[in-house]
């Protein structure tokens, strides 16, 4: 019983951690709180399903292609929409309110386009939906793949941020965007990259999730909220923190669903979220003030 909860929780948590990675990069490096994040994951989810059902393209191939397209989309979004707001705000607090409102707009815009293209019904394809036994617990293969992708991309990201000069530049911009230009860093370029990579990761997450979970065009907000809970729990911009917090949230939800009441999982998520916001807004692991 406990082993089952633990394994299922960890697998679910892997999905959540993956979901949060992109958002923590976007907010940590580009300083844009992207409330349309869940809709970006949905684009990839619908894209994978459409490619599979209409063109017979293997989801595993889509998993490689969609993030590249996502990078391009993020690049365009940052350059066309966020950059003008950053330039206009001129370092004042106005960027925060502006980016919230602009990404609200993006949220509804994408949601509307998805509704037009795919309708309001729930979609699912259940690809590679066969059980694999782990320590006597049967786990669906597609979930395991998603968990593997999370571990891989999370690990790669942590490595790149801590071990490469590119990562050093990223971290410099995340810590002090004001003084990064003094050492010759093009802040605009780094922020754009952060936003684009964040979008690419959103697509990785969306594409992996679509292989086993049902989703609908109006469900993006739930993804955004879960990603946000994890980002704030882990500390904004803190990639290892997001990984740990994602796994923790997966465990918590699985525990609440099996031990208390499945109807209360969302309520539990929000309670944790509100509690973290109130008592540790800097995150459970972060100490950045």
């Amino acid at each position: 019983m406990i082993v089952t909860t633990l394994i299922l929780g960890l697998v679910l948590g892997g999905t959540y951690a993956l979901l949060a990675l992109g958002l923590t990069l976007q907010y940590g490096i580009a300083r844009i709180m992207n409330l349309a994040y869940g809709e970006l994951t949905l684009i990839a989810a619908f894209g994978l399903v459409a490619l599979f059902q209409q063109a017979g393209i293997s989801p595993l191939l889509s998993l490689l292609v969609l993030p590249v397209l996502g990078y391009g989309l993020g690049w365009i979004l940052y350059q066309g929409m966020m950059r003008p707001l950053v330039a206009r705000s001129d370092g004042t607090g106005r960027l925060e309110v502006d980016s919230i409102l602009a990404t609200f707009g993006l949220l509804f815009l994408i949601q509307g386009l998805l509704l037009l293209a795919f309708g309001a019904n729930f979609t699912s394809i259940s690809y590679l939906d066969r059980g694999v036994s782990i320590l006597g617990v049967s786990v669906a293969l597609n979930r395991l793949i998603a968990f593997g992708i999370c571990v891989l991309s999370g690990g790669a990201l942590v490595w790149a941020l801590n071990r490469t000069t590119w990562g050093l530049r990223m971290r410099a911009v995340a810590l002090t965007p004001g003084s990064a230009p003094l050492v010759g860093i093009d802040v605009n370029r780094i922020a754009r990259q952060g936003f684009a990579i964040g979008t690419a990761l959103a697509c990785v997450a969306g594409a992996s999730i679509s292989m086993y979970q049902t989703f609908s065009a109006t469900g993006g907000v739930i993804f955004t909220m879960k990603a946000l809970v994890i980002v704030i729990m882990g500390g904004v911009g803190n990639v290892p923190g997001a990984l740990i917090a994602g796994l923790a949230l997966g465990l918590l939800e699985t525990f609440v669903a099996t031990a208390i009441d499945p109807g209360l999982t969302l309520a539990a998520t929000f309670t944790i979220f509100l509690a973290v916001l109130l008592w540790r807004p800097q995150g459970l692991f972060g100490a950045r003030s």
Partner: peptide, 20 residues
């Protein structure tokens, strides 16, 4: 009824960029 969210989204974006 289907393009309602698109319009709401465009409204938000327009307000931010045109009429802040």
């Amino acid at each position: 009824p289907d393009s309602y969210p698109i319009f709401l989204g465009l409204m938000f974006i327009a307000v931010v960029f045109v009429l802040p």
